[in-house]
Nucleic acid binder design. Structure first.
Length: 492
RNA sequence: GCGGAAAUAGCUCAGCUGGUAGAGCAUCAGUUUCCCAAACUGAAGGCCGCGGGUUCGAAUCCCGUUUUCCGCUCCA
């Protein structure tokens, strides 16, 4: 990472704080690690990103509907999904090499070694020992096994180990007011399961026919061992997910479709396509038969923003198995043999985007420090060149001065526009300063009421990106703003 | 979790080898100006991250701790 990009990232972070986009959570109490709050402008921007996604996915697709499932879910769901086991690893650190290992994998390696050496009896004993310890969550026993078998760190070669610790990435809490006798529930580590468990509800109540999708925006929680890089990895984060249910055998076709469609969504925002890349997963998760990340070039390298996964029928099958309810779809369409496809568990293509990362990406991409120096004086401005549809404030209205009835006239215009758009009124400070303040939060246009406005009802519009002004009739403002911030530009 | 660095006003930072806190910008109230960060006057704003120690005396030295950043690690 060069100094410049490093600097840029830092500047964006301080800009985000200074102008009310992102604050650290609980800041007056020294903060809470890897948790962030969105401020007055951040909340607007974030909502606009959500709207853009929702419109592109739900509104623009007849066969995709949106839901909002609860964060709490039945604990069995996380057993079915594999999160209870998969998110729950016994870890051990070697104090000399500072490397961390999964304790069970270290023992597994030894078992494999014993097997290849022909000591199958020893291997079996060790295996049984480990399985018993894992089953009873006996971490002390796991450490004993490692010590007793003289298992050393592959890097340092020593057996200077820490205690075995359980890293559970799911947050848990007690359901029911009384701790005693209450049930442990988890805060969902992903939103996808809320869609899978509602598959039949939505399909039946919406009379959905395959292929169809269910979309959802919502919070998810992961107790990351280490969470850093601002809002790239947070303990509480927001996902925008869509699960697309399809006929088995058509998954590669739909996988390709969504891979292309999702990148198009990103690039439609005007982002330099060169800053995006696909990253195919070489190692697939247990549920997937194909997976790709859409990565964005942050100052610290390409990072995943969105994932497209072919999840097969893994999730629905698991839920069928664990719940005992049939997660099937009857497909009346006729197949090549002239008979209906009939009952099957649908396959799933998932698109899953991290809203907070998308937010940061949008901010980084819009942030610009412009040098406006002339021969007479040095000058500069910081401007967020956000797509107008995403801008927190759509327009700002200024009276050129605080007197002569200009504020009243400006208020009058403001009162009309605020029925339709999020607009701001400002009369403090010189006009130039007000322009710059709006530049800093990405407001696409500023409307100024001057003395001429009182005579002929015209105002000047000053554009954020070009800093050019034009005089228009006040009655045309609603349409001008409407055209400028229209979603059509992004969705068309 | 390990190693390194940092933390002083809303922001960016100064504050030297210890002597009770300062600038610029921002904020607020005025005056002036009237289309791109203008000027002037005044005001407000700080347990110097937190806790302990050394000292007559600590923002400053030492220890601990929290948070942030960087590297490693991890990342369904």
């Amino acid at each position: 990472m060069s100094k410049n990009t490093d600097e840029l990232f830092k500047n964006v972070i301080s800009h985000a704080k200074e102008y009310g986009f992102v604050f650290q959570s609980s800041e007056i109490y020294d903060g809470l690690s890897a948790v962030y709050d969105y401020g007055q402008n951040g909340a607007e921007l974030k909502n606009n990103i959500k709207t853009y996604w929702w419109k592109a996915m739900v509104q623009m697709h007849e066969n995709i509907v949106g839901i909002d499932s609860a964060i709490f879910m039945h604990p069995k769901i996380w057993k079915a999904s594999g999160h209870v086991d998969g998110f729950n690893d016994p870890m051990i650190d070697n104090k000399d090499s500072k490397k961390r290992y999964r304790a069970d994998q270290l023992i597994e390696d030894r078992i494999t070694k014993l097997d290849t050496e022909g000591k199958t009896d020893d291997a079996e004993v060790l295996q049984a020992d480990m399985d018993a310890a894992l089953k009873s969550d006996d971490l002390t026993r796991l450490k004993e096994i490692i010590i007793n078998n003289n298992i050393t760190c592959p890097i340092s070669g020593t057996s200077n180990w820490t205690e075995v610790r359980q890293f559970n990435l799911m947050f848990s809490t007690q359901f029911g007011a009384m701790a005693e006798g209450s049930e442990e529930v988890y805060l969902r580590p992903e939103t996808a399961q809320g869609i899978f468990v509602n598959f039949l509800n939505v399909q039946k109540s919406g009379r959905m026919k395959i292929p169809f999708g269910i979309a959802q925006i919502g919070k998810a929680f992961r107790n990351e061992v280490i969470a850093r890089q601002f809002i790239i990895r947070m303990r509480e984060f927001e996902q925008m997910e869509m699960q697309f249910f399809i006929r088995p055998g058509t998954e590669m076709e739909w996988y390709e479709y969504w891979k292309t469609a999702r990148l198009k969504w990103h690039v439609a925002l005007g982002t330099d396509p060169a800053k995006y890349q696909y990253h195919d997963h070489a190692k697939l998760a247990h549920y997937a038969n194909a997976a790709v990340d859409i990565e964005y070039q942050f100052p610290f390298g390409f990072k995943e923003v969105e994932g497209i996964h072919s999840r097969t029928d893994f999730d629905l099958s698991q839920h069928q198995k664990f719940s005992g309810k049939k997660m099937q779809y009857f497909d009346p369409e006729l197949g090549p043999d002239g008979k209906p496809y009939g009952n099957y568990i649908p396959y799933v293509i998932e698109t899953s985007i991290g809203l907070d990362r998308m937010f940061l990406l949008t901010l980084m991409n819009a942030y610009e420090e412009e040098d406006l120096s002339t021969e007479e004086r040095t000058d500069s401005r910081t401007v967020l060149k956000l797509p107008p549809a995403l801008a927190p404030v759509k327009a700002a209205i200024f009276p050129l001065t605080k007197k002569d009835g200009l504020p009243e006239k400006a208020r009058e215009i403001m009162d009309k526009l605020k029925l339709e758009y999020h607009v701001q009124y400002e009369e403090k400070d010189a006009i130039g300063k007000r322009y710059r303040r709006q530049d800093a939060i990405g407001t696409p246009i500023c409307i100024t009421v001057d003395h001429q406005s009182l005579e002929d009802n015209t105002v000047t519009i000053r554009h954020r990106d070009s800093m050019q002004q034009e005089r228009v009739h006040a009655d045309d403002l609603e349409k001008i703003i409407g055209d400028l911030v229209s979603w059509k530009k992004l969705l068309g």
